[in-house]
């Protein structure tokens, strides 16, 4: 058994929520910078063969964000939406749409809580219905993983 100090947890909560929890060894102020300053966001959100082609966030109520990637085929995908509430460096609520589809978004609350000398980040993604959550799992989240899909598409499945 290994001791995992960062302790990532991903859980389905009730019928409509997905909760992601992760601990960091740095203060909420530093974690806040890393999740709200584009120059820093780019460093950890870019996948190795998926450079971020757009990274914009205005972390204020009434602001918005737009994160876009291009995959190896030149196909791009993005998450975007309005910022609803901000209490730096501890809280942000935003709405997230995949590829601009406003019919099936999620409301994401991000909380940074002091935990010892570090931070516990808790993100709650709330979908309107359990079906939309299922579809988000099936499409939105996985669509961002073209690498996985490329591998899948390369697999041969017998009829």
């Amino acid at each position: 058994m290994t001791l995992d100090l960062t302790n990532l947890q991903v859980t389905l909560d009730g019928d409509t929520n997905i909760i992601v929890r992760r601990d960091f060894t740095h203060s909420p102020a530093r974690v806040w910078r890393a999740i709200t300053e584009p120059a820093l966001i780019r460093q950890w959100m870019a996948a190795h063969d998926h450079p971020m082609t757009r990274c914009e966030i205005d972390p204020r109520p009434g602001g918005a964000f737009h994160y876009e990637w291009a995959n190896a085929d030149g196909h791009s995908y993005f998450f975007s939406g309005p910022i609803k509430a901000v209490d730096a460096p501890f809280h942000m609520t935003h709405v997230e749409y995949f590829n601009g589809d406003t019919s099936a978004g999620s409301t994401v609350t991000t909380d940074l809580a002091v935990r010892g000398t570090g931070t516990r980040m808790t993100m709650v993604m709330r979908f309107d219905t359990t079906q939309i959550r299922a579809a988000a799992i099936a499409t939105g989240m996985t669509d961002g993983m073209d690498e996985v899909y490329r591998k899948l598409e390369a697999l041969e499945f017998p009829d």
């Binding site: 960062t6 990532l8 960091f24 060894t25 890393a34 460093q43 950890w44």
Partner: peptide, 10 residues
């Protein structure tokens, strides 16, 4: 991704 965030923070 979070491991990379750790590195950014460090």
């Amino acid at each position: 991704q979070f491991d990379k965030l750790d590195a950014v923070l460090d």
